[in-house]
Amino acid sequence: MLDFSVVLKNAPALLEGAMMTLGISLFSIALGFIGGGLLCLARISAKPWLVGIARVYISALRGTPLLVQLAIVFYFLPLLGLSLEPVSAAIITLAMNTSAFQAEILRGGFQTLPRGQNEAAWTIGLGWWKTLRYIQMPQVVRKTLPSLVNETIDIIKNSALISTIAVTDLMRIAQTYSSTTYRPLEFFITAGLMYLLMTSAVAVVGRWVERRMSY
């Protein structure tokens, strides 16, 4: 009934798609980490207008479906004269989306730091940046690592949606081949397994890093 020989024949294309999925996801996560860090700093800053901007951004991007965000970036930006390649649109959207989630994760990490640690940094003479760099960030990253790993897994899964704006990721390849070969079961099962492999790999690496970093 199931015949995976078709899948095997097209394995190179599927692998290429998987590389695209992985590449776009990891790049977006990295960009989103920078964006999320800045957003988090804005969100916990003492300036009301900065806090306001960050709150609106975070709420908007966490409260709407990624599919809708993708469509807005891909179809709406060209109206403003900003035509984007599907791949760039995908990366921008995923990065913007995950930055909002990562900002909230990081904020949670900051909140668990005892205030006394900052007071100690103050009395020792560490300025704002050095306190952030040497005292807060290392601890926040360690504390939020499990959540950040989960977020990475979510982004890999959610990245399947970029197939809707014609990025040739794993999902798109599976769709194309399943409709030309009439073998949707085989191709989607294979795609599912490949996603599972990628997300499991991230989970395993994440746990390993967590163990290495614990103090």
């Binding site: 005892p114 006394g116 007071e119 100690a120 009395t123 005292i135 290392p138 601890q139 360690r142 103090y215």
Partner: peptide, 14 residues
Amino acid sequence: EVCMVFQQFNLWPH
């Protein structure tokens, strides 16, 4: 030229 020692020590655990 001033430094404080705290009740809760406030060493940085990492």
